[in-house]
Design a protein around this nucleic acid. Sequence first.
DNA 1: GAAACAATTTTGTCAGACATAGTTTTAGGA
DNA 2: TCCTAAAACTATGTCTGACAAAATTGTTTC
Lengths: 228, 228
Amino acid sequence: MTAPRDVPSALIRLIEQDGLEVGDRLPPELELVDRLGFGRSTIRETLKMWESMGVVSRNKGAGTRLTEEVSAKTIRVALIIRQEADSLLRMQEVRRPLEIEAVRLATRNATSDQRLVMKARCAELLAVHQAGEDWRAADQRFHNSIHEASGNPLFRQLIEQIQAGFNNIYEAPFGRPHLGQDTIPMHRELADAICSGQEDLAARLTGQIIDQVCTEAQEIAEELNGRC
Amino acid sequence: MTAPRDVPSALIRLIEQDGLEVGDRLPPELELVDRLGFGRSTIRETLKMWESMGVVSRNKGAGTRLTEEVSAKTIRVALIIRQEADSLLRMQEVRRPLEIEAVRLATRNATSDQRLVMKARCAELLAVHQAGEDWRAADQRFHNSIHEASGNPLFRQLIEQIQAGFNNIYEAPFGRPHLGQDTIPMHRELADAICSGQEDLAARLTGQIIDQVCTEAQEIAEELNGRC
DNA sequence: GAAACAATTTTGTCAGACATAGTTTTAGGA
DNA sequence: TCCTAAAACTATGTCTGACAAAATTGTTTC
């Protein structure tokens, strides 16, 4: 079995070989040319691709740094999303089944440690919300703990990265970042349901939470359509 | 307001200006160099990036074709997914809720035209399978028609690209590419259920199909674990 | 009309050069 | 000694030119 001769594979081998970790600097392009045996522009095409995927960050004069773990067992998936008034809604449509499935798996598979973490995160979220502060980070941490407990890292990665992509874009356009304001109190019930093993109830609550977000997203979409 | 001077924006403007649609060929790289005023390697970096995102497909000698609609309002997001030991199974875990939700939406929202397309694709799939030929492409076309009918392009994009990522890795290692051999006959029932509006039945059938794939994936995972 | 061959087109890759933005080193002065 | 400013260096960004290789297109021949 011979190693495939293409730039991404060669780069990954070099990274593993040199033991490069997230935050480390990659060798400069000219050194990569020497060590990998490819032309500079060919190597650059891969590096640029990785940059667009958030695997590395590049700065003129400064160099290229690893920002995500890569290995031979890393899959890089790219998708394009049309930015329309209703794309926020569409994204929730996709998020709903993923979140529900993650909650079901978490209810079924969570260890007792993970149940404690979820309860703690939920308590933090409620406290922050009660205090009237920005609860988005706490909300994300709570949901992360659920995805973690599902036992399948793909859920967290998918949901997180889809959401991150949208946040980058919708930060400026809408002045309404706090989608799902009214759903916070429901999170207590959700946490209880998960921890007590009530799978169907937990799934139903998750659906309700996202329904509420959808309703708000729809209002925004209608506002935007009316404005055009 | 001046137009931003970067390759992606310029390319999108050119595509809109020329009225290029999905399936059309882009001008050759050297013509793009003339018309856009960038160097060839710079333009290639963007085209390569778009290729990795599934926006265009490129073939030596043949040219570059549009495979996804692009416009100034298109967002391109990249995901990274770490591949774990039993990732084939994990991937099915993620695919299941997405497929089921897409089927539900399709059952609810499909136009009569889309129902006809789904029936036709299903018939093609059954015919190919009956003939004992490679049915994977036909299978994908059938599922694509379902995702299309869901009215939310994110489903198709997510499922398709996740699967593509896995195919790249699992092509060689296993000599067993035909996952879900026995599920093909069930597809006829699924198509009927969708077209006749039986949402719950369609969802149940989809779940069964993926369960079957999961079972086979688990067998493979155990084989692999046993071997190590 | 069909098959085989030749010419053209188009992407893939490499090499070299210069520009530009950070980073590091050095020199100078309080 | 310590801080600042300039110089030198490093690394990415971009452009040009050249050739290779694959696919398509056109031409010839039977």
